[in-house]
Structures are given as C-alpha cells and as structure tokens.
Design a binder for these strands. Sequence first.
DNA 1: CGGGTTCTTGACTATCTTCAACGAAAGTGG
DNA 2: CCACTTTCGTTGAAGATAGTCAAGAACCCG
Lengths: 224, 224
Amino acid sequence: MYVTSEPIAPDADFFSAPQSTGRVLPDRRVAMGQHVFREGDTVRQIYQVKSGVVRLARLLEDGRRQVIAFGYPGDIVGFPSLGCYHSDCDALTDTVLRPYRRQVLEDGGGDPALHRFLLDAALKEISAMQDHFMMLGRKSAFEKVASFLTALCARVGTGTDGHYTVKLPMTRGDIGDFLGMTTETVSRTLTQLRKSGVIEIDHVNTVVVMNPEGLIALASGEAN
Amino acid sequence: MYVTSEPIAPDADFFSAPQSTGRVLPDRRVAMGQHVFREGDTVRQIYQVKSGVVRLARLLEDGRRQVIAFGYPGDIVGFPSLGCYHSDCDALTDTVLRPYRRQVLEDGGGDPALHRFLLDAALKEISAMQDHFMMLGRKSAFEKVASFLTALCARVGTGTDGHYTVKLPMTRGDIGDFLGMTTETVSRTLTQLRKSGVIEIDHVNTVVVMNPEGLIALASGEAN
DNA sequence: CGGGTTCTTGACTATCTTCAACGAAAGTGG
DNA sequence: CCACTTTCGTTGAAGATAGTCAAGAACCCG
C-alpha cells in the first residue's frame, strides 16, 4: 500500500482487475526477505500484490536509503521508466504477486479494460506520492509517525469500537527511511506516543491505537 | 520541469508529441502569477508546457506548503486522480500551454500515439518523483540546494566552457517549499555557495555556476 | 517616490541526529 | 534444546543542523 493513499474497504475486491483476455501468467511467490526486483532491471512484468507486504526503496551511493512505499494487497508495483525498474523491491513477509505483462500497461496488449486498470493505478500512485512529499518535506517527527500510523490503520487496521490494531512487518529502520528520519527518532517517537496513552505496543511490531482521534490530531499538527 | 528528471537536449523536439487526429484544442496562455488550475478542480484537460514555467503545489490546512514540481517546457502537468487535479498549478512567468483532452490519456480517444506519449510522461513522472523523495528525506540543506541547481542547469542552463547560467523564476520561498526547508536556509545556503566561489548571483534570480564539478560533488554529499 | 514584497543576515532556540551502550529478540549450529 | 551470534529496538547524553524571530536592505510596482 501506498501508506499515504486512501483506504480501501476491507472487503473491497481489489482483485476486480479485469481478467486478462490473453495467456495468464502464474502467480509469483516470494519468501520473506527475498527481493522481487532490483533498480535498473529490465521490466518484463509489473505486479499486483495479492498477499503479503513488499518494500520499495532506492539507495544513494553512500548507503543512504529512501523507502518509497510499502506495497500492500491490491497495490501495483514495478511501473517502468525507460524500460527499467527505478527502485528495489523486497518482500517483508511471504508474498504472493500477480504479474501483468508490461505490454498491457504500455499499449493495452489487446486488453483495454486491464490497460485502463493499470493506468488508473499509475495515476493514483502519482497522487499518493504527493501526500508523501508533504510528509517528508513539511512535517515534524511526531506528525510523520502519527500520519504513518493513521494511514496504516485506515488501510489495514483491524478492530472495533475505537481501537485499531496494526501489524508492522517493517523494521524501525524501514519506517525511518520511509519518513525521512533516523531509527532512533522513530523509536523515541513511538515511545512518547505510548507514554501519552495514544497507542500501545505489543511485542515490538504490533501497535494498538487506543485513541484514534488523538492520533489524527497529532498527524495534522494540532498540539504535539 | 521535474527538476529532478533527466535533462532534455536544448534542441530536443519536445513538441514531437504526436499530432492529435481529432479536433485540436487551442493553446492556453496564462499570465505570470495567474493560476492554471486548482487542487480539486475536475480535470477536463491536461497540459504540456510550451513556454514559460509553472509551479505545482499542495497546501496543508495550517498554511504549510509543499511545492511538488516546477513545470518547464516539454513537461506535462495536470494528471488526474479520481477525476480531479491533486495540486494547484500557477504560472511563474507568462506561459503558453498546449491542452490535451483528458480522454486521450485515459482511453486513447482514438489517438494511440498520443495516448502512449502521455502515458510515458506519467511513468517518467513517477520516476522523477522518486528522486525528489530522496532529496526531501535524505539530503542536507547543502545537498538539496546543490542538487536543485545542478538539475536546473542540466535542464535549462545556458552557457559554455564550464559556466552555466540559470534563471530562477521562482522565489526563495518556492525553492524552500520544493526542497523542504525554510526561505532563510535557502538564502543562507546560496550565500555560502557564493562565498565559496561555486556560484555567482546576479540580480537575485540569476545564478551562474562557476564550478559545475564542485556543485555536483556537493549535491551528492562529498565534503560540504 | 513610496509601499509592499522579497531577500539577506544575525542571534537564539528547538528539533533531530549522532554516538554509544545495553537489552531483547530472533536465527544458527552444535 | 541450549549456548552463541547477530540483528533490532530502546534509551541517554552531547552536538549539529536547520528553524524561528527579528531587523534591515534590496528590489519591484504603480
């Protein structure tokens, strides 16, 4: 999921992607920790995440890293530019991917409905990335973490009566590289959110949002 | 121009966009300071910048702003998401825009070549935005400004024998909101670059790069 | 020429990073 | 199954980078 993007309803049929009229490629399974593709590889297919979570990231020569997005079920990853992938993609959990031929995105490949579906995904991605810009460029550490948790909850949170539980398959370092801050600051911010009672943390990578309104307020900079 | 994107040769025929086979919309002229479209407006057409420079930006409720991109000749602006523009677009100079019907992007509108052209532009934009992520999230003030000037030079710089001149039609505030820093820090950084002899500044909004290699080194974090 | 905006500079402060240490968790091999 | 190693997470102290506030200079416009 592009964590900054709009939530999809839990029962949304993101597999409503039109069936290809051509030969259907078999799903690709990728084990946790394995890579899906690398920056610079020639794009032969793009993928829709069916289950699991992937991480899209780019590296600078000196090792600095920027996580571009986390891909959750329903998301499309691997859009080409000049024929190549422009980020690394790795599986954070065991993942199942549905491949689409690159050609379907580019010229329709005889399947207009699928073509349109992929195009819309690309356009939505542009929009989602703009939210991410705002987060990277203009938000404080608190707002970043609160925004991140809010978006995650809306997208993949489970729970009822004002409590949402969210699993974090990524490390603190991944979150930091996504939000443009250090591992330590992510950790400290989560600790403060916990101490203020807005969230609870189970076993490091499960967050329970106790006070969603408070979290949303923090995300947009009210108080801090 | 997506300042982070690849330069185009000065004489590149960015108007090589295939001629529409349908009725051609007349160019749109927008005076300096006027807006082209607003976030939330329904997209009826998308534009290619023919001349001039535009600014794409988003606002937070509390007034914080993030400049998404500067649109230079050849760039496509106004990609829809869910049928609406997702940022404000304003003309920084008198600007001429070539409109394309939204439908041509979405389903081809009977013009496959133009459709493909617009799609490629969207995919390139995704790639360019990823560079921008790295800049916003992982670079220091010096690196940001140096990267910005480097990209501008490569794209629209004029000059010979190791000197490049670049006009800045945007304010320091615009640059700051593009790079995720304050007006003051942009100003201070430019002053330091000037004092170190890497650039000279004519009349506030013209920069002459005296030492392009030095600037490139600074952009990627070598020394500072 | 005068008024408003933009740019620059300085002093001070806050936020976040860096460096370092330690503890917990998870994976490895005997 | 347990010791060992490694990675990951948390916390603290110190420092650096960039932000804030404020004032003055330069520029632009009618």
